[in-house]
C-alpha cells in the first residue's frame, strides 16, 4: 500500500525525453532574436539618417574600430590593467570579508563591536571615496584596488554573517552532539551551509567591483578600460568609444555568467 502511494505521488509527465535537436536550436534563435533586432536597428538607424552617425556610429563601424583597438594592442594593455585591479580588489575583499563575516556571526562580542560600524558604513555611496583615495594614493593601481576592496568588503561580509546566522541551529546541534568542537562545527557545517549566501554576496560584489573600477578609471587614471572609454570620447573617436563601452559591458556580463556557472557547480549538493 505505502509503496503504491509513493509511486502515485512520484508520477510526473516525462513522456518524450529525447527532445529534438532542431527544436532546441529554433528555440534558442527565437529567445535571442530581440538582440538581433537591436543590432539591426543600431546598424540601420545611422545609415538611414534617423540618427546622427556622429553620435551613434553604425554597429559595423564600431566593430571595425574594435578590431583596430584589438590589433593595436590598446585593448589588451588596458584590459589587463583593469582586470588586475579588479581581481586584486575583489580578491582581497573576499579574503578579508568571508573570515570577518564568519567571526562576526560566530562570536557575539565581535558582532557587538563591529555590527554597528558595518550598519553605519554600509549605506554610504562608495564612489564618494574616489577623490580622497586619489589624494592619498595617487593615479596608480593602489587607489583603484583600495576603492574596489572597500566597496566589495561589506557586501561579502554582510552576506557571510547573515548566511552563517541563518543556518538551522538543529544542524549545528547535531554536529556538536556528534562530538565536533565548536570550531569544527563552524567550518565543517555552518560555512558550507551558508555557502549559497556567501556566493550571492560575492556575486553582488562582483557587479559592484565593475562599477567602481570603471568609475575610478574615468576620474583618476592614465590607463584601464574606463580611461580608454573617456580618452576616446574626449578625443572624438566615438566609434572607438562605443567599441570600448561594448567590451566593458560584455566583460561585466560574462564575468557574472561565469561566476554563476561556477557557483552553481559548487552548490550542486543543493536540490534544484
Amino acid at each position: 500500500m505505502s509503496r503504491s502511494a509513493t509511486v502515485v505521488g512520484a508520477v510526473k509527465p516525462k513522456l518524450d525525453r529525447p527532445r529534438e535537436k532542431g527544436t532546441a536550436v529554433v528555440n534558442w534563435l527565437v529567445r535571442w532574436f530581440p538582440l538581433a533586432i537591436l543590432a539591426i536597428t543600431w546598424e540601420a538607424a545611422p545609415r538611414l539618417g534617423l540618427v546622427n552617425p556622429a553620435s551613434l556610429p553604425p554597429l559595423s563601424v564600431v566593430v571595425a574600430a574594435l578590431g583596430r583597438l584589438a590589433m593595436g594592442g590598446d585593448l589588451l594593455a588596458n584590459g589587463l590593467k583593469s582586470l588586475f585591479r579588479l581581481v586584486c580588489g575583489l580578491g582581497l575583499a573576499i579574503l578579508a570579508g568571508v573570515p570577518l563575516g564568519l567571526t562576526m556571526a560566530w562570536f557575539r562580542p565581535v558582532r557587538a563591536v563591529f555590527g554597528p560600524l558595518v550598519r553605519c558604513l554600509y549605506p554610504m555611496p562608495k564612489s564618494a571615496l574616489i577623490p580622497v583615495l586619489l589624494l592619498w594614493l595617487g593615479l596608480g593601481d593602489l587607489s583603484k584596488i583600495t576603492l574596489i576592496f572597500l566597496g566589495c568588503l561589506l557586501p561579502v561580509l554582510i552576506s557571510t554573517t547573515n548566511g552563517v546566522r541563518g543556518v538551522e541551529p538543529a544542524m549545528i546541534w547535531s554536529a556538536r552532539s556528534l562530538g565536533r568542537s565548536r570550531l569544527a562545527a563552524l567550518f565543517g557545517v555552518a560555512l558550507p551551509a551558508a555557502m549559497p549566501d556567501v556566493l550571492a554576496g560575492i556575486r553582488s560584489a562582483l557587479a559592484m567591483s565593475f562599477v567602481l573600477l570603471v568609475s575610478s578609471e574615468y576620474l583618476m587614471s592614465r590607463d584601464g578600460l574606463g580611461y580608454l572609454i573617456s580618452f576616446l570620447g574626449d578625443g572624438g573617436a566615438y566609434d572607438g568609444m562605443f567599441a570600448a563601452v561594448l567590451v566593458v559591458s560584455i566583460l561585466g556580463f560574462a564575468a557574472d555568467r561565469a561566476f554563476n556557472a561556477v557557483s552553481r557547480r559548487a552548490l550542486a549538493w543543493r536540490e534544484t
Binding site: 509527465p13 516525462k14 513522456l15 518524450d16 525525453r17 527532445r19
Partner: peptide
C-alpha cells in the same frame, strides 16, 4: 501540455 510538450 507537459513540460516536454506532450498532451497528457
Amino acid at each position: 501540455r507537459s513540460n516536454a510538450g506532450v498532451l497528457v
